[in-house]
Design a binder for these strands. Structure first.
Length: 474
RNA sequence: GGUGGAGUGGCCGAGAGGCGAGGCAGCGGCCUGCAAAGCCGUAUACGUGGGUUCGAAUCCCAUCUCCACCUCCA
């Protein structure tokens, strides 16, 4: 069975055929760092993180490049309004994005290039486009000539004459309303630090060119997969593809787009102001639960976010954690290497190979956990061990292995030493309660349990003694 | 106007011609001193109207509703 992925360009699932056997090059449009990350941003990042993990698990060496757009109109405007230097403003939010990605277990990309760090590459590509007749200079700015490139509109099936007129720039400088800026001449009110020398005078890069230039630098003229949010298809990705191909490069072989997070059916976005900030969500829920909530819906389907979304995800996460903890106590935890290489259930593989069918894959995990819990009750250690290994391996593919270091002890945010000390203290209470229970002194036993519960410590009685855990909800 | 997507049980969500994914919530039961956790059971779902078929949530026609992109957006 080979991996099949839905290609936005052809609107069908296609077998993933890498350019180079055993390798996968991915360019992912990262954030424009002009405001704080919301859960929609994380959804996209998690979707492609799962793609990376599945490719790696399938034996590919993945090179994932995720850019940072650290200069654009809004960044300059917002920084100016706030009385900040634009570069400090951009870096502040770049750090917030990185922290948010890391919090939900998104792997660090192989490269994380910034637009402002690649001015030479950008200038080189623009000069190439001017030289071959696909771009023209006007008043110190350079525009891409959409009418000059017959492939324009190929990605999103747009016919130039059917599009509504663009309103992003005065028409007088452009030959066609849909021509877009590759290079923007410096305006008098813009800071000197936001300007670079070019053959056309001082200025800064347009929005789309940086991705073409950086993809070219890190992944070459042609690469396997280009990803991003659905809203980037047009005009951003269309323009990227047009300028790269007009420059003579093959560019992306396959396009993947992740869908939005919606609230009451409407898209969550910066401009609508209905974005749920990552910082707000993580103040009330575990990061793993957020990741699970974001990954649980197929990446091409809208994810309807409601107040219960995180509660449900937390319940599922607690179920996974609970099984892994109980099973590990009973039969021992497999090593990380074993988890990373264990054979995966066929149904899981089939689901993931079918355009990353995470919802179906999750169903397999739940079935495995149920079987494991049943085996635990039945005392079938062999079955428990098998279910534990299978469950952790599958969850590992989704970046949600409860036994992985990044999630261990996350609830308290506590160090191993602190957890050890807490365990020492709670054990004393558990022993006292066991003595009370043995004496059928239920009042004392319940009082101990209630007192611990008040501190956020949950006691569960089992056949072979009581165990404790921290409550899921803070 | 152009392009694309969606309507599935209380909720979230898979599936895509024939055995009713999975989760959450609910209800009944088992277990438990009581809980918690866990396990077992439990829903006659597929926007509407036609059609094709032995058989349709899945195919065809029509129709309604919603969302998005075409301006910045994951």
């Amino acid at each position: 069975m080979t991996l099949r992925l839905y290609d936005t360009a052809t609107r069908e699932e296609r077998d993933f055929v890498p350019m180079t056997a055993g390798k996968a090059g991915i360019y992912l449009c990262g954030p424009t760092v002009q405001s704080a990350p919301h859960v929609g941003h994380l959804r996209s990042a998690v979707a492609f993180d799962v793609l990376q993990r599945w490719l790696e698990r399938s034996g590919y060496a993945v090179t994932l490049v995720r850019n940072v757009t650290d200069i654009d109109d809004k960044t300059l405007a917002k920084a100016a309004d706030a009385g900040w230097e634009w570069w400090a403003w951009a870096l502040r939010y770049e750090r917030e994005f990185q922290a948010a990605y890391a919090a939900v277990g998104v792997k660090a990309p192989a490269a994380e290039p910034r637009a402002t760090g690649h001015i030479p590459e950008i200038l080189g590509m623009i000069e190439r486009l001017v030289a071959n007749g696909h771009a023209y200079e006007q008043g110190g700015s350079v525009y891409f000539d959409v009418r000059s490139f017959v492939g324009y509109g190929a990605l999103t099936r747009q016919a130039l004459d059917d599009l509504s007129p663009a309103q992003d720039a005065p028409l007088e400088d452009k030959r066609d309303t849909h021509d877009f800026a590759l290079w923007k001449a410096r305006k008098d009110d813009e800071p000197a630090t936001a300007s670079w020398d070019s053959p056309w005078g001082p200025g800064r890069p347009g929005w789309h060119i940086e991705c073409s230039a950086m993809a070219h630098r890190y992944l070459g003229e042609e690469f396997d997969i280009h990803g991003g949010g659905l809203d980037l298809r047009f005009p951003h990705h269309e323009n990227e593809q047009a300028q790269s191909r007009a420059a003579g490069y093959g560019f992306a072989r396959l396009w993947m787009h992740s869908a939005w997070v919606t609230q009451s059916g409407a898209k969550m976005s910066k401009s609508l102001g209905n974005g749920l900030l990552v910082s707000e969500v993580l103040a009330e829920h575990e990061p793993a639960a957020l990741r699970l909530a974001l990954a649980a819906v197929h990446y091409r389907s809208m994810l309807e976010y409601s107040p219960s979304t995180l509660d449900e995800a937390s319940a599922q996460w607690a179920r996974f954690q609970g099984f892994v903890a109980r099973a590990s106590e009973k039969v021992g935890a497999p090593s990380a290497a074993t988890v990373a290489t264990a054979e995966l259930p066929a149904a899981f593989v089939e689901a993931m190979d079918d355009d990353l069918g995470v919802p179906r894959a999750l169903a397999v995990i739940h079935e495995t956990v149920r079987a494991g819990n049943a085996a635990l009750t039945a005392g079938d250690d062999a079955a428990v061990a098998a279910a534990l290994l299978a469950a952790r391996s599958m969850l590992d593919v989704l970046g949600l292995d409860p036994g992985a270091p990044e999630w261990a002890g996350e609830k308290a945010g506590a160090s191993d030493a602190a957890m050890g000390a807490l365990d020492f203290l709670v054990k004393a209470d558990i022993e006292a309660r066991a003595a009370a229970r043995a004496a059928k002194d239920w009042a004392t036993a319940d009082a101990i349990r209630d007192r611990l519960a008040g501190a956020g410590i949950v006691i569960s009685d089992g056949a072979d003694g009581a165990r404790w855990s921290l409550a899921s909800e803070s």
